[in-house]
Each structure stands twice: as structure tokens, then as C-alpha cells.
């Protein structure tokens, strides 16, 4: 480690019993930076995120979060510095929205007033109506669920946000609105964000730093422009073209 970083993977390899999910990947996310991970399904982008959250462990290499190497004995502590949001929201269906948001803080015995203030602050930040807080996840809309999930991830004011297709399950209108809100939020909070998406437009919308993966390896890192103007290999052009395909054809028609 030469300099401070939010997340760093150093020669990280993770194998599932029959496949290599992440193959000798080295990657850094600087403090305050948003990095978008993109690639076809099965390319290892979600596994990389889980490695950062300590949900899976590398067979080789080391994962650093806020300059500390992940290890079983510091895992719980480091996770309090991480906010994790997944496509389905991952909200616990037996708890109200507010109970979901405050679970970790209550477990850590944070001051009740602090918790209440923090919830109010976050609800405003993610623009969640106050009455939605008392509802159970099944009674929330898809967009509201993701807003609650984001509140839960932000509750302990983590340094790092790990977002695994957070908008993937939403319909286009809701999704578009939330994209705007999220980008504003990232800029305002200056969190270090690692965002997994399969949508090139979304990746470009959120970040100047796009990491394209294929079969467990990083193919190219750069801005959207870089990927188009200076593709590292044919796969990059094919992937970008495939992503643009329908839009382009529709426009050309």
C-alpha cells in the first residue's frame, strides 16, 4: 500500500467449485471516487463486490477497505464502514422500514436521539416520505424499497458504498428518477462508491471510471469515451456496440 485508498484488490482470485469467478484482479477505488463495474453476466463483477464486503473470501490475494486488509477478526468493524445495497433491496420482510434502517445502529447501542435524527436526515436525503418509514417492505413500491435500502446502507455513515445493480429491478421511469437522485447524492456525500451495473449508459452516467470485466478479469479501465475511442481489444468495442445497439438502431431508423 503506497497511498491511502478506499478499496483495493491486490491480485485477488476467487474460484467457485467449478469456475473461476475472479481471476487475479487488481483494482483501486480512491477516496470520494465512483467506480462502475460493468460486463456481461458471469464476468465476476458481483463476486468482486462480495469480496469487498467480506461475504466471500479470496483464495489468493488481499482485499483492502479503508486501508485495512480484510481479515476475519476485523471484518465486523470494517463492515460498519461499508454500506451494501443489492438489486432486490435485501430488506428484512419482518421489520418495518425504519427498523430495517436502524437495526445495526440499535445493535451497536447508539443513542436513541442520534438514531432518530439520523433517520430524519437520511429520509430527507433519499427523499423518502415519512409515512413510508413505518411500512413493511412488502407495502413499499420498488423505488421506495431501494431508497430505504440506501438509507440502511448510509445509516452508520460509511466511507464506502458497495452497490450491486441497485436500480436493476426498477421500471424505467422510476429508475431514471432514482439515477438522478443517486448521482446528486454521491456528489454531495463524497463517498467512495463501487457500483455494479450491466448497463453502459448507467455506468457512464455515474462515473468517469468504468471498469469492464470479462471472465473474471479486468479488460479495460477508463471513461466511456476511452472505451469507445481506444478499446483495449475487440471485445470492448463489441460490448459497447451491443449496449448501444437498440438505441442506435431505433435512432437510425
Amino acid at each position: 500500500m503506497l497511498m491511502s485508498c478506499a478499496i483495493a484488490f491486490e491480485h485477488v482470485t476467487h474460484r467457485y467449485p467449478h469456475a473461476v469467478a475472479v481471476d487475479d484482479v487488481s483494482l483501486r477505488v480512491e477516496p470520494g471516487e465512483t467506480v462502475a463495474l460493468i460486463g456481461p453476466s458471469g464476468c465476476g463483477k458481483s463476486t468482486l463486490l462480495k469480496l469487498a464486503a467480506g461475504l466471500v473470501w479470496p483464495q489468493q490475494g488481499t482485499v483492502f477497505v479503508t486501508d485495512r486488509a480484510l481479515a476475519p477478526d476485523n471484518l465486523l468493524e470494517i463492515r460498519h464502514r461499508i454500506g451494501y445495497v443489492i438489486q432486490s433491496g435485501g430488506l428484512f420482510p419482518h421489520m418495518s422500514a425504519v427498523d430495517n434502517v436502524t437495526l445495526a445502529a440499535r445493535f451497536l447501542k447508539r443513542d436513541r436521539q442520534w438514531i432518530a435524527d439520523r433517520v430524519a436526515e437520511l429520509a430527507e436525503l433519499v427523499q423518502l416520505p415519512r409515512d413510508a418509514l413505518e411500512r413493511f417492505p412488502n407495502n413499499l413500491s420498488g423505488g421506495q424499497r431501494q431508497r430505504v435500502s440506501l438509507m440502511r446502507a448510509l445509516m452508520l455513515d460509511p466511507a464506502v458504498l458497495l452497490l450491486d445493480e441497485p436500480l436493476g429491478a426498477l421500471d424505467p421511469m422510476v429508475r431514471h428518477g432514482l439515477q438522478e437522485d443517486l448521482r446528486r447524492l454521491f456528489q454531495r456525500l463524497r463517498k467512495s462508491v463501487l457500483l455494479v451495473t450491466h448497463d453502459m449508459a448507467e455506468a457512464a452516467f455515474f462515473s468517469q471510471h468504468i471498469v469492464l470485466m470479462r471472465e473474471g478479469q479486468v479488460v479495460q479501465r477508463g471513461s466511456y469515451r476511452d472505451l469507445i475511442d481506444a478499446p483495449a481489444e475487440q471485445f470492448v468495442s463489441d460490448f459497447v456496440k451491443a449496449q448501444r445497439g437498440l438505441h442506435a438502431e431505433a435512432l437510425d431508423a
Partner: peptide, 12 residues
């Protein structure tokens, strides 16, 4: 999903 979400919250 739910199992991992609980883990990622840093709960023992």
C-alpha cells in the same frame, strides 16, 4: 440475499 444483507450490516 437476506442472509448476506444481514452479514453486510456488520452484525455478529
Amino acid at each position: 440475499d437476506l442472509r448476506e444483507s444481514a452479514e453486510a450490516l456488520g452484525l455478529p
